[in-house]
Amino acid sequence: MNGSVLQGRAHKLGDHVNTDLIIPATYLVSTDPAELGKHLMEGLDPDFVGRVRPGDMIVAGENFGSGSSREHAPLAIKGAGISCVIASSFARIFFRNAVNAGLPILESPEAVESIQEGDQLVVDLARGRIEDTTASVDFPVPAYPEFMRRIMDAGGLIDHLKSRA
């Protein structure tokens, strides 16, 4: 995912958006991101997915992705066309799953506090920067730990393991 610049509008969500809200368990009978994506955030707001345009970003509060270990959550987010998730903090299992599923996730309480619903955002993953072009402000994002960067650079855990074999 390094080197790519993402662009889209912000969809703001609150704290503790758990995986049951992201993709209700009743839909966990598919592993297809496009199929899962049809039901993204259905537990929170059935109209959410209808408002998403490709490239848009989720901007959420504390503890995003808490609850169940379902990797279907990052897959549903990708499948709906969301390009990245910015949150004040992430739940632990979701963080691993997002890395493994190749979904960019950025932790920045400052950006979350500042960004408003519908703001146009530009995220430069290589430089670690979130720019809110609507409000003309930008935010640095701390680098991932070296160990995790190696997994991300390989394109996820499976490709990382294959490259070592």
Binding site: E71, N97, N100, A101, F147
Partner: peptide
């Protein structure tokens, strides 16, 4: 608890991080 990819990888390698 972990996600499916972590577990699928460990099913093959017998290891995790």
């Amino acid at each position: 608890g972990m996600g499916s990819t972590d577990v699928g990888a460990a099913m093959g390698t017998g290891e995790t991080w």
